[in-house]
Simulated assay, not measured.
Amino acid sequence: MSKILIIEDDLSIGEMMSIYLYEDGYEVKRAENGRQGETLFREFQPDMIVLDLMLPDVDGIQLCTMFRQTSHIPILMVSAKNEVSDRVKGLQTGADDYLCKPFSMRELSARIQALLRRSNTFTPQAPSSSDTVIHAMINLDVEKRCLFVAGKSIDTTFSEFEIMKLFWQNQGRVYSREELLNRVRGFDSHVTERAIDVHIANLRKKIEDDPKEPKHIKTVWGVGYKFLLL
């Protein structure tokens, strides 16, 4: 699990990023100012930093320069400043990418995945441990939290993987939406029963040959869902 350090003084934006990235399966720590960010950088030892350019105590450019003196981990700079000169200055200082506010959480996640892949910090491996469930087309590595379909690593959110793991460990058992909700609520307090249907739809798109005619994640009408390996 990759570790992300967010240094953002805006409470609402910082919390939104933290929740979304946690849901995506990252271990996340957040600092509200530069000094706290320096401390967490040393103690947390993140795999990547999301750094706000404008902080109340330390300039983001200055902080980026300091991080670059001791580390080569990816740095994604975020800022409300969208002038070309600001972006160039951030990149010249040592940031690997620059994202202008406002931005969508999906774009934030995509930028982070791309940076981690390029830095070889995020390198999913083929399942090989004793805690790996193997099938001809679908593999689940519980220890590494990796889902493979036809040998290809498939990205999942934290909640999607928790649902998939529950299905794998209890194949054929029917789960109601409420039971699945209780499974993931501890990780994401914002999940609703309607969101469970969305998670199921997303999982079907990722593992089924035809999501409209699923062979693995079956709907049990009036009750919920079950998983069949076939």
Rank of each mutant, 00 (worst) to 15 (best):
L51R: 11
F41P: 03
E43H: 06
M66H: 11
T39L: 13
L55Q: 08
F44W: 07
L51A: 09
C64P: 03
E43R: 13
I49K: 08
D47Q: 08
D59P: 00
M48S: 10
D52A: 10
M66A: 15
F44S: 09
T39F: 07
V58L: 15
F67A: 04
V50M: 15
R68M: 09
C64I: 05
I61N: 03
L53E: 11
L63M: 05
I49F: 02
Q62G: 00
T65M: 11
D47E: 10
D57F: 05
R42D: 12
L51I: 06
V50A: 06
L53Q: 13
T39E: 14
I61M: 12
R42G: 00
G60C: 08
L51K: 12
F44V: 12
L63S: 03
L53G: 03
I61V: 15
M48P: 01
E38S: 02
L53A: 10
T39A: 12
F44M: 11
D52L: 10
L55P: 06
L63W: 05
D52H: 06
Q45A: 14
V50H: 03
R68F: 04
C64K: 09
R68W: 10
P56A: 10
L51H: 07
G60E: 06
M54F: 08
L63A: 06
M54C: 04
F44D: 05
Q62K: 14
L40T: 01
M48N: 01
G60Q: 07
L53K: 12
T39N: 08
D59T: 01
F67S: 05
M48D: 01
C64V: 10
T39Y: 10
Q45K: 15
R68K: 15
T39K: 15
D59V: 00
C64R: 10
V58I: 15
D47F: 04
P46E: 05
I61A: 03
R42L: 12
I49Q: 05
R42S: 11
Q69E: 15
I49H: 03
V58W: 02
L63D: 02
D57L: 09
E38K: 14
I61E: 02
L53I: 11
D47H: 15
E38V: 00
D59G: 12
T65E: 14
D52C: 05
R42C: 02
L63G: 03
L55C: 07
M48Q: 07
L51M: 12
L53W: 14
M66D: 14
Q45M: 10
L63Y: 07
V58M: 15
E43K: 14
L40H: 04
L63N: 08
M66P: 00
T39H: 08
P56C: 12
L40E: 12
F41K: 09
Q45R: 15
V58N: 00
T65N: 13
D52F: 03
Q45Y: 01
L63R: 09
T65G: 04
R68G: 08
T39C: 00
R42Q: 14
R42F: 02
D47A: 06
D52P: 04
R42K: 14
I61K: 11
C64D: 05
Q69W: 00
F41G: 07
L40K: 04
P46C: 06
E38F: 07
Q62A: 14
L40M: 13
